[in-house]
Design a protein around this nucleic acid. Structure first.
Lengths: 221, 221
DNA sequence: AACATCCTTACGGTAATCCACAAAGCATAA
DNA sequence: TTATGCTTTGTGGATTACCGTAAGGATGTT
């Protein structure tokens, strides 16, 4: 079983819950951190001391408080650690259950498991630890289909960018200008309109507001 | 100290965290539930058995799953239990930190403590238990100001309804009609516009789309 | 080269919204 | 009652979004 585990989560009682799960799996060398920056330091220090961690369990979202942090999210932390330890087993343990997020974490960041904090969170976390130890990927049932779902494969990065900018408060004209500045094509106002219309059809949205609400609920942005 | 405590929270490892806090306070008779309906049954049963609970610790939001539930939120559960046990000490333990929500819970439902699940959640929960046992109200620092008067800037149920209907794809005219049909006042198109403008100011939103995106991110709708 | 097809862009009329201001309703106090 | 402030409602003009149509371009096929 894993020898030394780093837990990163800003909720202290989630930490104690995860702790119990690890102890139940006979893992005793456990370090935890409530801040990503702190976790990064501990991780590097462990390598320096030649006692590196062999598993990372991290949340995705961290509330801001008085402390200044460079690494603001679990995803950013994973990004950093992946460059320093490409083969480190990583388990994401998060409330978030957005397919798009799960997919990028699995494919881009190559995390080894994604567990949803939920009614059976502890149980699934325990399963995930065992699975990952045996080099098997683990996904909670809620997000099992994140990699196979075709529903949102029809929508591409350009579309996502459009809706994201919409949700950031840009007008269609501003989006057109933004696209032009970033050398994205097509960029004309007319094209933006046309593409948004297509998306509104696709998602059965009454208007742009409705579209953003739907796409946000689906977790595409 | 309290003798018998009912914990209601759908996250199983939050439960184990709360459990640890209670044990540290020498409370051993602990029952927990992941569903509000279930909690309600256990509560009534305990009274029937003449071994009633003397403390309730509950979350506010519960994810839906396959089980059919009548009581869908912690607030609804509190509402029910307050009618059956007007003097029951109640501690809310939630991620939610909206002043409006805190205020209605304190004033309308007379909950005895509001603890934010956060970096110091366990510590504060422990403090809350001690305080409530000594008949003292407890609020986490993040929401300590929820009861002070200066925050008429806060968002109320009417505002939430407006933005929710917006996100459902209704036009402002349709929202006006909807409000009139449901006897909500004010209902005129002009009033809808005005209120939305106020909200856009409040949330620093560029337009209605931006507003909906922000409010969705904050979890208000 | 000629043609079809697809994609991008442009334009114009209609509808929705944004915004400032004015009128009406309603309560409280002099 | 009248005056006063506050909220709600109404109005009109500017802006933006919506939607159909059509012109221009690129690509591929024959």
């Amino acid at each position: 079983m894993f020898k030394k585990v780093l837990i990163v989560d800003d909720h202290d009682d989630i930490n104690s819950g995860v702790l119990n799960v690890l102890k139940a799996n006979n893992i005793v060398n456990i370090v935890y951190s409530q801040y990503c920056d702190d976790a990064h330091l501990k991780f590097k220090r462990a390598i320096f001391d030649q006692e590196p961690f062999d598993l990372l369990i991290t949340d995705l979202s961290f509330k801001k408080d008085h402390r200044e942090c460079k690494i603001l999210s679990g995803e950013a932390l994973i990004d950093v650690l992946r460059t320093e330890a490409p083969e480190l087993p990583i388990i994401v343990y998060s409330m978030n259950s957005l397919f798009q997020k799960v997919r990028t974490l699995i494919t881009k960041h190559r995390v080894n498991a994604y567990v949803c904090k939920d009614r059976k969170g502890s149980l699934e976390l325990s399963q995930a630890i065992k699975a990952v130890y045996n080099k098997i990927q683990f996904l909670s049932p809620q997000v099992k289909n994140a990699l196979s779902s075709k529903l949102d494969l029809e929508i591409n990065d350009y579309d996502v960018e459009l809706v994201k900018q919409l949700s950031n408060g840009l007008s269609q004209a501003e989006i057109s200008a933004y696209l032009e500045q970033n050398n994205m094509s097509p960029s004309s106002l007319s094209s933006v309109e046309k593409r948004l219309n297509k998306l509104k059809d696709q998602f059965k949205a009454n208007n742009a507001i409705h579209l953003v609400a739907i796409v946000k609920d689906l977790g595409l942005i």
